[in-house]
């Protein structure tokens, strides 16, 4: 289906930044805080995406995903483990029976610079290995050149392979240079059938931030108002503290509302966030912080 970019909605950067500043003045205390920190933990896509990843490391990560901290067995498990396609099988086996999903990056992650046929082949392979979710990247070269239809059609092609598998579309907002472009790319991805839109690969310095995430949440909201169809959101990279996670969730709560406040519709792509949440939950429960030595690094 042709994508009509002329209908794109304007974004005002100053307004976005002011709104974000307002969210960050919310004061979340006591009961509210513990509840929302547990929610944040359950929304994490625990991620390892390195050339040096081993099966052993992936297995360790899966153990952490299912049982984040032995001292507090009542903690929720995380939402998913996110790996390269070649580790999907290992992760799938390690997570068997746990309901933690396996997400696989695909489509020539992180640059997306390859032939569509190759990207499709890679996606098929990841799905065959057992991936529950595919995290694809958009073709930023084509996007910045103004070839929006091409970007759209590539996403739609990958989407056509997904069926039951949920498709997350990474915009790599750090390369898009303006919030207007973030809005445009979000509209393209949603129109092409994304189940989730995701900010970043984590492979460049400019990862997720709140203004970018707000623009994406607003796009999701506008789409919902028009079509009544929900789309998920995943900020990824750069969110490492529990405090930041709370700020994101305040923003989510006041932008999209309670229907999105669950791991089915919102994820954090992060590796170190889980440990900070565990530390803070420990503080809420016992009144003092654990030494970091008590908390596993995977």
């Amino acid at each position: 289906m042709a994508f009509d970019i002329t209908k794109h909605t304007a974004v005002d950067q100053v307004g976005i930044e002011e709104r974000v500043a307002r969210f960050n003045t919310r004061s979340i205390k006591g009961e509210s805080k513990s509840k929302v920190l547990k929610l944040a933990l359950s929304m994490i896509d625990l991620t390892t995406l390195e050339g040096k990843d081993t099966d052993g490391k992936v297995k360790q990560l899966c153990q952490k995903a299912m049982h984040p901290f032995a001292d507090m067995p009542d903690l929720p498990r995380v939402a998913a483990v996110c790996v390269y396609p070649n580790h999907v099988k290992t992760a799938k086996q390690a997570l068997r029976g746990s309901n933690v999903k396996v997400a696989s990056v695909a489509t020539a992650f992180p640059s997306g610079n390859s032939l569509l046929a190759i990207k499709m082949e890679e996606t098929k392979w990841a799905i065959e290995q057992g991936a529950d979710e595919i995290d694809m990247v958009i073709n930023r070269g084509a996007f910045l050149k103004g070839e929006y239809q091409k970007v759209h059609d590539e996403i739609a092609s990958i989407q056509s392979l997904c069926n039951e598998v949920r498709l997350k579309v990474i915009l790599e907002t750090g390369e898009l240079s303006s919030l207007d472009n973030v809005r445009k790319a979000s509209e393209i991805a949603i129109h092409a059938g994304a189940d989730f839109i995701k900010t970043s690969t984590g492979k460049i310095n400019a990862a997720a931030n709140m203004p970018v995430t707000l623009v994406m949440l607003e796009t999701i909201k506008d789409h919902f108002i028009k079509t009544k169809k929900m789309v998920g959101m995943k900020p990824a990279g750069g969110i490492s503290s529990a405090k930041q996670a709370i700020q994101y969730l305040v923003m989510l709560n006041e932008t999209l509302g309670p229907d999105w406040l669950n791991p089915h519709w919102f994820r954090f792509g992060a590796s170190s966030l889980a440990n900070d949440i565990i530390l803070q939950l420990g503080k809420e429960k016992f009144g003092s912080y654990y030494s970091k030595d008590y908390i596993s690094i995977d």
């Binding site: 205390k29 009961e31 709560n253 309670p258 406040l261």
Partner: peptide, 9 residues
Amino acid sequence: MNWQYAPAK
């Protein structure tokens, strides 16, 4: 989840 912020007086 329905999230009401706890009082922060």
